[in-house]
């Protein structure tokens, strides 16, 4: 058998065909693009917050950092305000009782000395 005959015999064999080449999965987004997009979003957010804070500072006066206490709270804690406290004061220090009653009466009783006080109004009538 010469080479040609042998070749033709070999060509009676055929390679088994493999499966077709599968489709490629779509490429994943580049991580650098994602990083850049995240940086842009963060920068934009920070800038917006900074501008908003700046505008607020210009328009409104700065709020006092400490809230002023109410007049009631400023009253000396020793000054009596209830019947029970006046009773105790009378028992413990009777000399202070008059001063405490005077101070309390200034707030509790109507004003008599003012121009528009109740007494002045009644006197006109």
């Amino acid at each position: 058998m010469d080479d040609k005959q042998f070749e033709s015999y070999l060509r009676e064999f055929e390679p088994r065909q493999p499966h077709p080449l599968p489709e490629l999965a779509p490429p994943a987004p580049d991580w650098r693009r994602r990083l850049l997009a995240a940086a842009v979003v963060i920068l934009a957010g920070t800038t917006a917050v900074w501008f908003a804070a700046r505008r607020t500072n210009h328009v409104q006066p700065r709020m006092p950092s400490v809230i002023a206490p109410s007049p009631l709270a400023m009253a000396p804690p020793t000054r009596p305000r209830t019947i029970l406290q006046f009773t105790r004061l009378a028992q413990q220090d009777p000399r202070q009782l008059d001063a405490a009653l005077d101070a309390a009466s200034r707030k509790l009783l109507p004003e008599f000395t003012g121009k528009n006080s109740t007494l002045a109004t009644l006197a006109k009538e």
């Binding site: 009676e12 064999f13 055929e14 390679p15 088994r16």
Partner: peptide, 18 residues
């Protein structure tokens, strides 16, 4: 193993031998 050269008749013995 599986054959990877297939004879058209087919001839499994010849395939393995080749």
């Amino acid at each position: 193993g599986t054959t990877w050269l297939l004879h058209r008749t087919p001839d499994h013995e010849a395939e393995i031998a080749l």
